[in-house]
Design a protein around this nucleic acid. Structure first.
Lengths: 244, 244
DNA sequence: TCAATTCAAGTTGTAGGATGATATGCATCA
DNA sequence: TGATGCATATCATCCTACAACTTGAATTGA
């Protein structure tokens, strides 16, 4: 439990802060691709930290493919197309518009994945999905337990597609949304009633059992739109009509 | 231990190699979530590098949410659900099955995005998409030029959705595929005839101009399946039939 | 003058030690 | 017994030094 607290309250380490600063400067366009960064020496003076801290920060940006460091010359900003990793700025998610966009992406991913899962799921998949479903409804308190079960439900469906990349992407997007909502509840207790609609989940599960891709897709789509609404995000209809 | 490694393109730095080693150990399951890593001291001795190098490696893994370091205690492996970034192992993409899965994910993302783009695109979007289309056909040599134009074409469509996350995700997936194919061509000259089917692109563009989401979606789906076939990846039908 | 070589300065890469901050367990003492 | 304080282990940060690499200017030789 003590670990729990430590895990939630992320410690802001110096390299992390420096990396975040530079990252923002690059994303915002203040540092165009091709631009040379200040030297490590200059950066350490500018931020008032040691060169080691700057190096750790640059190591992160380098691993993400945001910059490229060349020995003897310097570090240069790379084009956004050459990113080696996808990362979502959690600050930006406090803006409802961005949350809306993320839900839209999630809807795209999960709707088609549900269809794939309906076509490919095995009995073992159905069992683990069912288990998550039961955990969701069985939980007395709408606290961590049922939210975790909800996430597990979606992850298990993604796993049932048999495509590990789909699983990775969906897990990632869901986790970002969960974290953001969790944060919103911490700062604004009004949000305490984040209800989970069990009926929507059951409909998805039944479509999977029946092996009906079209039904699974539309049930998942309806569910995500509903989930978005329940946290105050109005999803643009996307292609609810076009799916027919 | 003075190996001369003339890796093409990327200079293999020590922190990168250490991070890759640890990363693989975690991904492969040798280090389960919750496990404590050896101390920085031990790692630096084990790999024969300085503690600074180990720290830079750990900084990368930490930024990705693969491990969590707690001052005074140690560093611990985190569960795969808590990843803060998506990263695709390029080694794994040499396996055709993985390439197939990635194409499937791309198909999901781009098909629905094309539909969204058809509904939301403005004139400026159409112009830049058309420009990429012209660059693609105009190129004499099927070398870098037309491949870049092809990627740009897809990115501009993603941008026309007005959803920056969709744009990020699609750009990322496309870039991983491009890099992998580029690498395959380097090692196996047989692949030299990676043709680009202009007709498929034109059909997508026309659907966008017409503002027809359903047509855009099916044209995009057909195009990606075709593109996969042309590089030797047979895409499982996914939901070509279910889309009707 | 001109070309080739050498050299010096600047920058990142790596090494190693020192000190501060934090968590844990043990010993001490009332 | 129980609370306190100390020693230890570990990560966080800082510092200095040197190696490897690049660039451009100074030097040298014809």
């Amino acid at each position: 439990m003590k670990q729990r607290l430590a895990a939630i309250g992320t410690v802001e380490t110096l390299p992390h802060r420096v990396a975040a600063f530079l990252s923002r400067e690059i994303e915002s366009g203040e540092l165009n691709p091709g631009t040379r960064l200040p030297t490590e020496q200059e950066l350490s003076e500018k931020f008032g930290v040691s060169r080691n801290v700057v190096r750790e920060a640059i190591a992160q940006l380098r691993a993400d493919g945001m910059i490229e460091a060349r020995q003897g010359i310097g570090a240069f900003v790379l084009a956004p197309e050459q990113r080696a990793a996808i990362r979502i700025d959690r600050e930006a998610l406090k803006d409802t518009h961005n949350m809306e966009r993320l839900f839209e992406l999630r809807c795209i991913l999960e709707a088609e994945s549900a269809a794939l899962a309906a076509a490919r799921r095995g009995q073992a998949h159905l069992d683990s999905i069912k288990e998550a479903l039961d955990r969701m409804g069985g939980e007395e308190r709408w606290e961590e337990g049922s939210i975790d079960a909800d996430l597990l439900f979606h992850r298990e469906i993604a796993r049932a597609t048999g495509n590990s990349y789909i699983h990775t992407f969906i897990s990632f997007v869901c986790e970002q949304i969960r974290h953001s909502i969790h944060y919103a509840r911490m700062t604004n207790p009004l949000h305490d009633l984040v209800e989970i609609n069990v009926g929507e989940h059951v409909r998805i599960y039944e479509a999977l059992v029946a092996g009906d891709p079209a039904a699974a897709e539309s049930a998942m789509r309806a569910h995500i739109i509903g989930a978005a609404n329940r946290v105050g995000v109005k999803l643009p209809l996307s292609k609810t009509s076009g799916a027919k």
